[in-house]
Simulated assay, not measured.
Amino acid sequence: MAAISGGKTYHHGDLRNALICAAVDLATEGGPERVVLREAARRVGVSPTAAYRHFDGRGELLRTVKIHAQRALADSMERAAAREPGADDPALAAERRLAALCRGYVGFAVAQPGLYRAAFCVVRQAGPDELTPECRMPEPEIRAFTLFGEALDALARAGAPRRDVRPSAGAAAWSAVHGLSLLLLDGPLRRLPAQRRNAVVETTLAMVVTGARIS
C-alpha cells in the first residue's frame, strides 16, 4: 500500500485508477506531450516507484489515456446526436443524426484540444513482455469511426438515392470532420471568430451529408 499526502493511502487497484485520472488531467491541460508517469505520480502524491508498479513506463500510461480520450470523443458524438430533434421522415432523421455526430466530433476537438490530440497520438510500442495484462489487449476499434459507419448505414436503409454504402464512405466522412478539426485547432481557421467558425462547421457538415446521399 502506498502512502500519499494528507495521510491518505491507496490500495493497489485504486492507485492505478488515480494515476489514470491524473494522466487524463495532464492530457487535458497540454495534450499527449504532458503525460509523464512521474508527473502523474507527483499529482497523486506517491513515489515514482509506486507508480511503476502499475505502469511500465510513459508509453503504457499514454496508451491508456489515448483509449480514454477516444471513448470521450465518441461520448461527445453520441450526446450531440441525442440532442438532435427527431423527424417523421426516416431519411431526414438519418441525415440529422449524421450531421449531429459530426458536430459532436468537431465540438469535442474545439472544447478539449488536449484530449483530442491524445486520442490520435502515436504511442511507442513496447514488447509484449513489457506490458501489464491490461495493456496486452489490442486497442479497441475507434468508436467514432463505428458511429459514422452506422449512421451511413441508417441513411442508406432510410431510402437514400443509392441503397448501398461504399466501405470508404465512413472514412470519407471521418476525414472531412477530422481535417476540419485540425484546421480549427492548429491551422489558419483557429483565428476565426466564433460566428464564422460555426458557419464553416455547418457548411462542412452539410457537405458531408450531401456526399453521403450520392456516394
Rank of each mutant, 00 (worst) to 15 (best):
T204D: 01
L101S: 01
R103V: 06
R83P: 04
L131N: 03
L147F: 11
A119K: 06
S175E: 12
H68R: 12
A81T: 12
R166G: 03
A50M: 00
G104I: 06
A82S: 01
A81P: 04
T49L: 06
A81G: 00
Y116L: 02
E95L: 09
V110E: 01
L180T: 06
L205D: 07
V110N: 05
E139D: 11
P128K: 03
A160F: 09
C135T: 14
A91Q: 11
A27N: 07
R213A: 02
R197W: 11
G187K: 01
G187N: 02
R163Q: 06
P193G: 03
E141W: 14
A18H: 03
K66P: 07
A40V: 10
N198A: 04
D56I: 13
S215L: 07
T203Q: 14
R53M: 01
Q70D: 08
A169L: 05
N17E: 12
V201I: 15
G179Q: 04
L19E: 05
P161L: 07
F145H: 14
I20D: 02
V110C: 01
F108G: 03
E33V: 11
T132C: 02
S215K: 07
D75V: 13
R53S: 04
G187V: 08
L185T: 05
A100S: 09
T28F: 13
R117N: 03
L61M: 04
A51D: 01
G30W: 13
R43S: 08
T203N: 14
R16E: 09
L92H: 06
A172R: 04
R191E: 12
V165H: 05
I142C: 10
E141Q: 10
H54F: 11
C135S: 15
A173G: 01
R16P: 05
D153S: 03
Y105V: 10
E139A: 07
A23G: 03
L147M: 09
F120T: 15
P138F: 04
P193F: 05
W174D: 15
G13N: 14
A154C: 02
L184I: 07
A111G: 00
R63Y: 13
R16F: 05
G30V: 10
A169E: 10
T49I: 08
S5Y: 14
A41H: 08
P140D: 07
A23N: 00
A109E: 07
D75C: 01
I20R: 09
R197K: 09
A91C: 12
T9G: 01
T204G: 00
Q125G: 06
A50T: 02
M77R: 09
D14K: 08
Y52L: 09
L205S: 03
S76Q: 08
C21V: 15
I67M: 10
R163W: 13
G31Q: 02
M207A: 15
T146H: 11
Q195P: 10
I20W: 12
G31M: 00
R43V: 08
V122H: 13
E141M: 08
T204A: 02
A100H: 02
I4E: 09
A3L: 12
Y52A: 04
E139Y: 12
D88M: 03
P32R: 08
K66Q: 13
R163M: 07
V24P: 08
A50L: 02
R143S: 00
S168K: 11
A119L: 10
E95C: 00
T9C: 00
H11L: 15
C21Q: 15
H178S: 09
T204F: 12
Y116N: 04
V35L: 06
L147K: 02
T203R: 14
